[in-house]
Computed example of a mutant assay.
Amino acid sequence: MSRHWHDLHSPASRASLYLRAASKRKISGDRLPGDGLRCLIGVQPGNLAAYRRLCHFADDGRLPATYPHVMAFTLQLQLMTGDDFPFPLLGLVHLHNRIEVLRPLGAVEALRFAVYTENLQPHAKGATFDLVSEAEDGIGLLWRENSRMLVRGLKLESEANQPVEDEPTALPEATRWYADSDIGRRYAKVCGDYNPIHLSAVSARLFGFPTAIAHGMWSKAMALAALGSHLPQSGYAFEVGFHKPVRLPSEVVLSASEAGAKGALRLDGQGGVLHMLGRWDSL
């Protein structure tokens, strides 16, 4: 399809976008917008340093592969709170995330982001769509992200075609960490994702969760940081599917393949709860 782009000098303020998100509580249509947003966004050194500390990334001169997601987050919010976006933001569920690092993420001061949505498909619990974010430097495309989002309660005419997921794999333990009760608030402060389900037990209960849950992208970032020596500097994809949420506080165990061009990982919690299943592969 031919996409119409809106080029922005800067994204709107997060506060105004969250107010827009809070005001929309119902599905208003079943078509994704054909427009996309583009914007040049600079790296904020203080925020980057705080993100590295929060997610345990080493300062090796390269952006963590999940950090462009943080840079693009406000632009994504603006896209999904636009007048032509038909779904309430606060009801969306992040099912799957794939990041592709096409070239090394070193010596980056700013990136030109493009964000758009596509691929609306029926699902057993409603429908899914892909939120796509791409980042370019002066040479060309450098990084790409695809976030699969679930819209609960949306009915499409065609039948749901559920993908067959790989069976959870038995893997050697790589590391484990403790997700404390305030990690949702600390992640929100650094990354801007103030979804109430992550902030406190009180706010999480308003959305049907008995306690606050960890951000999925924090769990993915922690796994990526722990497996940094397993991956090349570029030319790879790192993707995960989010299963049961990590309730706060709790301990989780990361298991993974040995270092190599491709491998698998899983994140488990207490009582055999599978939180996340993923893999990496060369492009």
Rank of each mutant, 00 (worst) to 15 (best):
G208D: 12
D281Y: 10
M71W: 08
R62E: 14
G153F: 03
P11G: 15
D281G: 09
R20D: 15
A49T: 15
L111G: 12
M217G: 04
G208Y: 09
S10Y: 13
A179S: 11
E258C: 13
S16H: 05
W143E: 04
K125Q: 14
E167R: 08
L141C: 08
D60W: 04
Y178L: 08
G192H: 01
A22H: 07
E145F: 05
N119I: 00
Q270K: 08
L248S: 11
A12N: 11
Y194W: 13
H6Y: 04
S23Y: 12
S181K: 03
A223N: 02
R185N: 01
V101S: 06
R148H: 03
F87D: 12
N47I: 14
M149D: 05
T211A: 14
E173I: 11
A188Q: 01
L40W: 06
C39F: 09
A58W: 02
P104S: 15
E157Y: 04
V43A: 08
L102T: 12
L105G: 12
P196F: 03
H9L: 14
N161C: 11
A221G: 10
G241E: 04
D30I: 10
N195W: 08
R52W: 09
T117I: 13
R152T: 12
S181F: 03
E109T: 06
Y18W: 14
E165P: 05
M1D: 15
A221W: 06
I41F: 04
G235I: 04
E136V: 04
L89G: 08
Y116R: 15
E100P: 00
V240E: 05
E258W: 12
A110W: 04
L199T: 13
A221Y: 05
A160R: 02
L277W: 00
L32T: 15
A114M: 01
T117D: 11
V43I: 12
L48M: 14
L274W: 02
W5C: 00
